[in-house]
Design a protein around this nucleic acid. Structure first.
Length: 264
DNA sequence: AACACGACCTGGTAGC
DNA sequence: TGCTACCAGGTCGTGT
């Protein structure tokens, strides 16, 4: 489910609710996660950070948990760890009875334990963070020039820009008025700069509404929280020009765009 | 380098 | 009501 803004919201909530907490017990309900049980017990959560769509839970002693929520994952703290949802895949029982829960109905998410040094090596392959200074127009232009891929596909590549997913890639292209099928290296300087700005704007707005509105599973990206212009609005009028939004398939996934606003 | 596909999984919903 | 088919916010690996 989550793209950068939702993952950011998750991280902020975890910092608020779990920072400094001691993990007294860990229960992994899936075999493939069991490796984490022994090594997380008795450790304290010293930091929670985000890199791209990864949630990084730093523990004392130089360990870190990398959580990737993929399509349906969610991480949150419950006051009473004994109150459990069906779809919970893992929980870290915290000192005092609260629980840090990894909820993941579709079980596509990832939980991994690393030494801090290993973690940095893995995260280094990701592209620049769009809301940090490292995502400059120059850098964006350079990678764009080197790629003939359609814009939408390019934006989903986490080594080019970190954190965009299917929704915000579509929204950024709409805001920049660029057709999702346009080859990256054929977009002119001005429009490229516009796209760069659109990515930052869309994500900043979405972070704001995600952090404000995100309260638990299934509750984000509803129309009130983040008014999408095109995503999921096949056949409905574009809020800018009133033409009907279209759905196409790129790389096996839906792309929504407005044929009126977004030109090649 | 790009593309097409399948794999990983479960659940919701539209249509018959 | 009950079945089927298709859809889903992500990523990785394989083959062409």
């Amino acid at each position: 489910m989550p793209e950068l803004p939702e993952v950011e919201a998750v991280c902020r909530k975890l910092r608020r609710d779990a920072l400094g907490a001691l993990i007294v017990r860990t229960r992994m309900l899936r075999k493939r996660d069991r490796r984490l049980e022994a090594r997380t017990r008795g450790r304290r959560i010293v930091d929670v950070r985000r890199r791209a769509k990864n949630v990084l839970i730093h523990l004392d002693g130089g360990w870190a948990v990398r959580a990737h929520l993929r399509m349906t994952g969610n991480l949150y703290v419950v006051e009473d760890v004994r109150l459990r949802r069906e779809t919970v895949r893992a929980y870290f029982e915290l000192e005092g009875g609260a629980g840090l829960v990894f909820d993941d109905p579709r079980t596509l998410g990832v939980l991994e334990l690393f030494r801090e040094e290993e973690l940095t090596a893995i995260l280094d392959s990701l592209g620049p963070e769009p809301l940090d200074g490292e995502f400059t127009v120059e850098r964006f232009r350079e990678t764009a020039k080197a790629s003939r891929r359609p814009a939408k596909i390019f934006l989903l590549d986490q080594t080019k820009v970190a954190g965009l997913g299917n929704i915000y890639a579509a929204e950024a292209l709409h805001r920049a008025r660029i057709h999702p099928g346009r080859a990256m290296n054929r977009i002119g300087e001005g429009r490229l700069a516009r796209l760069h700005l659109a990515i930052v704007d869309v994500l900043e707005n979405a972070v704001e509404s995600a952090c404000y509105a995100y309260t638990g599973p299934g509750s984000y990206n509803s129309e009130e929280n983040f008014p999408v212009a095109v995503y999921g609005r096949d056949g409905q009028p574009c809020p800018v020009c009133d033409r009907r939004v279209r759905r196409i398939v790129q790389g096996g996934r839906s792309t929504y765009y407005c044929p009126g606003c977004q030109r090649y």
